[in-house]
C-alpha cells in the first residue's frame, strides 16, 4: 500500500475494496458509495491533529501509566462449557466453514 504523505487522509474506491476484503465485510456498491463520501468528511476533521506539535511527545496507550502487570500462573478448573453458545459443533469441537 502507498504511504506517501500526500495520500494520507484519503480513502478511494480501490482502498475501500482492499479494506472491506481484509476486514471481512462484503459491502454492496451502494454502501461503498455512501461510506466513501462520509469517510471523506470524517477524515477532513481528523486531519486537524496534524496541527499539533508532537515532537518528543510519548504516545499514551493508556490514560494511566501501567507496566508489567503480572500474576501467578495458576492452574484452575474450567467451569464453563465453551460449546454452550454455538450451533456449529461436532463432538467436542467447534465446526467451522471449509478453509479452501
Amino acid at each position: 500500500m502507498t504511504n506517501e504523505k500526500s495520500d494520507y487522509w484519503k480513502i478511494d474506491e480501490k482502498l475501500i475494496d482492499h479494506i472491506s476484503k481484509v476486514s471481512r465485510l462484503s459491502l454492496t456498491e451502494k454502501e461503498k458509495e455512501k461510506y466513501l463520501k462520509q469517510l471523506a468528511d470524517i477524515l477532513k476533521t481528523f486531519k486537524e491533529i496534524d496541527e499539533v506539535d508532537t515532537e518528543n511527545v510519548e504516545p499514551s496507550f493508556h490514560p494511566l501509566p501501567l507496566s508489567n502487570v503480572w500474576r501467578e500462573d495458576e492452574v484452575k478448573k474450567w467451569k464453563w462449557d465453551p460449546l454452550k453458545n454455538t450451533e456449529h459443533k461436532e463432538e467436542k469441537c467447534f465446526k467451522g466453514p471449509r478453509i479452501v
Binding site: V57, E58, P59
Partner: peptide
C-alpha cells in the same frame, strides 16, 4: 499521532 495528541 492520535496517541501523542492524547498525551497533550
Amino acid at each position: 499521532k492520535a496517541l501523542k495528541v492524547r498525551t497533550k
